[in-house]
């Protein structure tokens, strides 16, 4: 599986994502600078990492969305390649309209940097195939603008097609207001596109993908992707 990690000015989780793809998964991985373009056949997985691209000026992700590399990302998404946006990467995917909705400042205006519990709402995606539906996992968040918003109509469509992949919950899996760290509608932590090949999530699976980090709950996001891509090759999809 050929992986790419896009580097925007202000990305700060690019090295962690590169490490997760190359060292944890053992797959060939390249950095792509924001000024570079690439072809849709170059990579199987493209990761948009966390950070503060362009200083989060105007709105988080709003300026990064127009970089040359993003033109290639949009084409790759249309060609069915897997796109994983984590944190600022999720914000960029929303601004690029590859996913529906928008992000606002956290409800309490604070930057939240701590572990959260997530419930896997949909395991029938290329990114979550190795989780059980309803499984509760612990993954860290680190963001100031993760307050997901979509209007009622968009939410209904999103839910009807199984677009909600992760929700914030308590340790027992209850999706409650108290377990919602940022005010996201219906505790949304991660969503997938209609075609199923673009996932955006605020929590950081790359920060909990190895034993040495004390938590491996995020590793299966990367392993699920690998299994899906290798399965696709085997089945000639």
């Amino acid at each position: 599986m050929k992986c790419a990690v896009i580097m925007f000015p202000g990305s700060n989780c690019d090295v962690d994502c590169y490490h997760a793809c190359r060292d944890v998964l053992g797959q060939p991985t390249e950095y792509v600078f924001h000024k570079e373009k690439f072809s849709s056949v170059d990579f199987d997985l493209i990761v948009l990492p966390g950070g503060f691209s362009y200083g989060d000026y105007l709105r988080a992700g709003a300026i990064a969305r127009f970089s040359p590399a993003m033109e290639s990302v949009i084409k790759a998404a249309e060609a069915g390649k897997l796109i994983l946006g984590i944190c600022n990467g999720f914000q960029i995917l929303l601004e690029a309209k590859l996913l529906p909705g928008a992000m606002k400042r956290n409800r309490d205006l604070k930057f939240h940097c701590h572990d959260v519990f997530l419930r896997v709402e949909n395991n029938n995606t290329p990114f979550t195939g190795l989780y059980k539906k309803g499984e509760i996992i612990k993954v860290p968040i680190a963001h100031g603008e993760g307050n997901y918003f979509a209007d009622r109509d968009t939410m209904e469509k999103l839910k009807a097609r199984g677009g909600v992949v992760f929700t914030y919950c308590d340790r027992d899996g209850n999706v409650t207001e108290e377990a919602n760290p940022n005010g996201s509608v219906e505790n949304i932590a991660g969503i997938v596109s209609e075609q199923g090949n673009v996932l955006g999530m605020m929590p950081h699976p790359e920060r909990c993908a190895e034993d040495i980090l004390g938590n491996t709950d995020g590793r299966r996001v990367f392993e699920s992707i690998l299994q899906y891509v290798e399965g696709s090759v085997a089945h000639g999809r």
């Binding site: 105007l58 709003a62 929303l94 601004e95 909705g101 928008a102 606002k104 918003f149």
Partner: peptide, 8 residues
């Protein structure tokens, strides 16, 4: 295109 996000 850029200055406002029509979603919000």
């Amino acid at each position: 295109k850029l200055l406002a996000n029509p979603v919000i």
